[in-house]
Amino acid sequence: MLVTGLAGSVASGQPRMDLLLPAELSFLTFPGMILMALAALKQRVYIHLSAALPVAAAADLALCQWLALHADFCGAQKPIMVGSAGLLLLFDLSAVTAPVMGLLSIRRLRGATP
């Protein structure tokens, strides 16, 4: 998301970010994050980080929606561009962290079994 937004901005010469992408992808990422948090809670592995991922993604989604609405009503493009890039990066990181944590949890639990 972030790479295509930056590439489109460079190609067109003006700021372009799709702030609605987290909303479009949330139906794919939220169930995985919630299942990861439930599995972490049951296995008692990486509980705090697993619980923080869906919360951070939901907050990021809300902020992206607010910023998209705010960007329509104001003419300041540079601060909106910087803010949207940061929010999209946060959403990307939370979406990538969940499967990585799942793999680390599997590895840690396999090592703990006799």
Rank of each mutant, 00 (worst) to 15 (best):
L28R: 04
L93W: 07
A95W: 03
M17R: 05
D72I: 12
T29K: 02
L87N: 10
L87F: 07
T29Y: 12
D60M: 04
A51R: 06
A85S: 15
G13T: 07
L93I: 00
A11K: 10
A112T: 15
A98L: 11
F27A: 14
R108G: 05
L25N: 06
G83Q: 13
L93Q: 12
D18L: 13
A51F: 05
G8I: 04
A98H: 04
G102C: 04
C64A: 14
G8H: 08
T29N: 01
R108N: 12
S84I: 00
D18Y: 04
G86I: 03
G111Y: 04
A58L: 14
P31D: 02
A98D: 04
A59R: 08
A23E: 07
Q77G: 15
S94N: 10
M101Q: 09
C74T: 10
H48G: 10
L93K: 05
P31H: 10
I34H: 12
A112E: 13
T113R: 15
G111C: 07
V82K: 10
T4E: 02
A40P: 01
H48W: 09
M36Q: 13
M101L: 15
G32I: 12
L21R: 15
A51N: 04
G111F: 00
A71K: 03
R110W: 00
P54S: 03
M101V: 15
C74D: 10
P15W: 10
L28V: 04
L53V: 11
L35N: 09
D92P: 00
P15F: 06
L38W: 07
I106M: 11
A51C: 12
L19T: 08
A68C: 02
G32F: 04
E24L: 12
P114G: 11
G102P: 10
G86E: 02
L88M: 14
D60G: 13
G5M: 02
S12V: 08
A98T: 13
S12P: 01
V3R: 06
